[in-house]
């Protein structure tokens, strides 16, 4: 996507920094990059390994004017942050990128080895000669994508894909198994899953809507809603608090699950909750509509993110 570079350079005339991606030599895929100068922008790339949701950086940069390259789903997070007052619309310049659907890079690495160059063309993903069908390695959210076009955007880059997104997959593997579980089995399932949690809070830090961050209640000792001991019930409780604080706010970007180093399927919790919110309130976070239940004061536009 070569036209991206001049667009970023042009954006830099009116913003302090543009959030995008650059190729990592070690990882063989795109990683988040901050472009401050036109010269730096020459490194910008956009391909199907740009899974990160860069909206996560916006509240931290609330004192700056920021350009951001955003996929359709990322734009929903930006819209939600604006709706909640964590980010000012006038403070962001959104470069909407037409998204081909993102590859689950961790999945690829774990199958083929870290750092292998990803080649994504003609419906196939190849890494060092090995090839897999594209839909097998797409992120779950990209299958049956509901938001290929950014809901909020100042300039677009790339042709909107003429191909329809991969159809929603039939729940397979863990989703299928989970759906069929009884309540008691689910309890056991989550106990097993959270026994691996190390409380590194990568889920929270990677979440664009977890804006409390440094003063997050699940890391606080007073009040101690979740105990300090890192064991399954405490970690589960901590995660449920995080999940519930995202009710009506989660845009389903899957970043928490992508960030989790021990592979806890966090989206099972959030997808369930998002479905319930949509069913009860007819509301999907990240759209034009006003959030139906805000658990904070929307009139307070000074988010005190500790910096």
């Amino acid at each position: 996507m070569e036209e991206l570079i001049p667009i970023i350079k042009k954006a830099l005339e009116q913003v302090d920094v543009v959030l995008g991606w650059a190729q990592s030599p070690a990882a063989g895929v795109a990683v988040p990059a901050f472009f401050h100068t036109p010269a730096e922008a020459d490194a910008a790339v956009f391909d199907s390994t740009c899974a990160h949701n860069l909206a996560v950086y916006l509240p931290r940069l609330a004192d700056k004017k920021v350009g951001i390259v955003a996929k359709g789903c990322d734009a929903r997070s930006i819209a939600q942050l604006i709706a909640e007052g964590a980010v000012k619309r006038s403070g962001v310049f959104v470069i909407g990128a037409s998204c081909p659907g993102m590859i689950d890079v961790k999945k690829a690495w774990r199958c083929f080895g870290f750092g292998k160059q990803v080649c994504d063309a003609a419906g196939k993903v190849a890494m060092e000669g090995k090839t897999v069908a594209r839909e097998e390695i797409l992120l779950w959210k990209c299958r049956g994508c509901r938001d290929p076009e950014p809901v909020i955007c100042d300039v677009t880059v790339g042709e909107a894909s003429s191909e329809a997104p991969a159809p929603p997959a039939e729940p397979a593997g863990i989703r299928k198994r989970f759906a069929a579980m009884t309540v008691a089995e689910r309890r056991q399932f989550w106990q097993d899953q959270f026994s691996r949690c190390i409380r590194c809070y990568a889920c929270r830090e990677a979440c664009p809507l977890c804006v409390c961050r440094d003063v997050c209640t699940i890391q606080a000792h007073e009040p101690g809603w979740a105990g300090a001991a890192v064991d399954s019930p405490q970690s589960w409780m901590a995660q449920l608090i995080r999940v519930n604080h995202l009710a009506g706010r989660c845009t389903g970007c899957e970043e928490c699950e992508r960030a989790c180093p021990v592979g806890i399927p966090l989206m099972l919790l959030l997808e369930e909750q998002n479905d319930v919110v949509e069913e009860l309130f007819g509301y999907r976070a990240g759209g034009e509509a006003k959030p139906p239940f805000l658990t904070f004061d929307i009139k307070n536009d000074t988010w005190d993110e500790e910096r």
């Binding site: 990683v31 988040p32 990059a33 901050f34 996560v56 950086y57 190390i198 409380r199 590194c200 809070y201 990568a202 929270r204 830090e205 990677a206 961050r213 000792h221 300090a228 001991a229 960030a259 180093p261």
Partner: peptide
């Protein structure tokens, strides 16, 4: 600037050893 400030690198590090007591 890209760092999310999570604790994974420390917890995954074989040599990092900081702890807190509660």
């Amino acid at each position: 600037e890209g760092c999310l400030s999570c604790g994974y690198c420390s917890y995954a590090c074989p040599a990092c050893h900081c702890f807190n007591i509660f």
